[in-house]
Structure formats: structure tokens, C-alpha cells
Simulated scan of single mutants.
Amino acid sequence: MKEIVLITGASSMIAQELAKKIGNDYSLRFLTRKKKHDNEYEWDIRKKTVDEAAFENISHIIHLAGANISEKRWTEERKKELISSRVDSAALLRHVLTKNEIKLKSFISASGINFYGTHTTEKIYTENDPPGNDFLSEVVVLWERAADHFKEHNLAERVVKIRTAVVLSEKEGALKKMIPPIQYYIGSPLGSGKQYMPWIHIDDICSIYEFALKKSNIHGAYNAVSPQSATNTELTSEIAKTLKKPLFMPNVPAFALKLMFGELATAILEGSRASSHKIQEAGFQFKFPDLKEALHDLLQKEK
């Protein structure tokens, strides 16, 4: 009998790619807002309702649910949604496990590299560093605290928190948004361009989840970030080189981005590096540690 893994955030890019990677080794179920397939079960975080049949005989939960950080301006209502979609969803899962006296082998939660704060420094952050003091770090701290409750309440043998960098994929996300301007000769770095953009290839982030699922000695927080760092300018330039397009437009000024995105612009204009040493020490090997190779792989798919 295959162990059953329940995955939240069924429509997310990572959930869909992860399912392809682990689907042969595990029996997969998904929590989603609207059921479309037999292995999907509906839940509504706002109404605090969930189809409890999804939890029967499960061994693991991979918690990927969470509203997109960069999708909309950060109004006060949006900020509440960003937190609720992560924290309240975890609380709903915890409620069902408690009610039905289910103990998991593992609870593996998405998290964010912005745990360390949204600012540009020369420091390379490790998992031993404290959290920052801005909105995004607050979101991640609450997100991880919600995950830790599963261990504290004896609902999971271990809890793993994957502090995810910018995921590079040809299908959606930051890279997909950066490609069209460059293709139409209007691409350029953002702000100073000196801000770091911690990144990871979509295949590697899915492999990290698989690694965390299969390795019973993995627990706690891990930076899911490529070993090779890149600034916004370096990333933009490397995309242009891969696409064989010139970059001749001036940098997009910071004030313009602030006018367009409000407080959200901070997440675009600031960024520091994070270390991947801990996950590598645990035995994980990146398939795409090099930015040039990662972009070549992804953008060749684009053609």
C-alpha cells in the first residue's frame, strides 16, 4: 500500500509539478476550492469547511496553500488575506487532525525566503538568523508558527518548513513575466538592479519537497534557494542573453514601481542572499545550481 499524501494549494504551479514527481511513489489527494477530479476534495478556508474524507488514512500533508504575494497591491484587506490563506488554512487542517485523532508522519509546509526581511545587504542569511521586521517577514513568521503547532500539539512526528526563493518556471511566476518585455526590446532591470533575487529552478524546488517527504531525518526550516546568487540586473541580463535579445532600456525607476505597486514594490526593489548550505549538508543535490544552465533549460522549453 502506498502512503497517502494530502496536498493543499492544488492549483499552484509547485503542486502540479510536484504531483508529477512523486505520483508514482505515493497516493495523492488534493484540497481545492472546486473539485474537478476524483482525488480532489473541496475546502473553504473562510467558511472553515473541509471534506474530511480527504484525511482518511493519510500519512503526510504538504501544505502549499497561500494567496500569491505579488498578485495584487497590499491593501489592508489584501494583507489580511495573505496571512489568513496561510495561517487559517493550517488551523483548519489542525482542527480536522485533532478531531479525528490523526497523527501524521510529516507535515511539510511552504514558507518564504522573506523570513529574513525585505532589504538589500551583503549578508548571506542562514536558517540560524532571526526574522526581519517588515510585513513579509511577519507573514512568514506567522506561517511557520502555524506549521510548528502540528509538532507542538503532537499531530505530526516532524515538521519541515521550506523557505522558498523566487521559483523560476517557463509556465508562470517571475520568469514568465520578465520574458515578454525582453522579447519586445523593452526589458530592463528594476530600480537600482543591485538587489539580490534569490532564485530556484522549478524542478529543484519540487525535488526539495520530495527530499523532505522521503528523508525522515529532515525537520525544521530549510532555505530553498540556488547556491548561485544573482542580482536583479544579473538575472535580467542572463535572460536577455539566453533569449539572444539586447538590453538597452534604462532601469525602471524605483518611484515608478512604487506608484504602480505601492508597498508591494518593496518586495521587487529589495532583496538579500540566503545560504543553501543546510539542505546540501543534509544530502540534497541541486540539478540546476547555475543560473545560465537553469535559464537555458527553461527557455528552451519556451521555444
Rank of each mutant, 00 (worst) to 15 (best):
R86V: 08
P189Y: 11
F30N: 04
K35V: 15
Q285T: 07
P131K: 13
S84D: 11
G220L: 02
E234V: 00
N133Q: 08
K105R: 14
K72W: 12
H153F: 14
I124H: 01
H95G: 01
S192D: 12
I179F: 05
I186S: 13
T266V: 06
P253K: 12
A91Y: 14
L243G: 14
E40I: 00
E170A: 09
S85W: 10
L168S: 10
P131D: 11
K123G: 00
K303Q: 08
S275I: 06
Y184D: 00
L104F: 02
V167L: 08
S109W: 02
Q195A: 03
L92M: 04
V5T: 08
A54L: 09
E157D: 14
E77N: 06
G66K: 04
S106N: 07
R273V: 01
R86Y: 08
L97N: 07
T126C: 05
L269V: 09
I268L: 14
M249V: 05
A90R: 01
R158Q: 10
Y185W: 15
I62F: 12
T266N: 08
E152W: 02
A256I: 12
H219R: 11
N133M: 06
T231V: 09
E281N: 11
F135K: 04
E17K: 10
Y125C: 05
N68T: 12
V5E: 06
I208Y: 10
A256S: 13
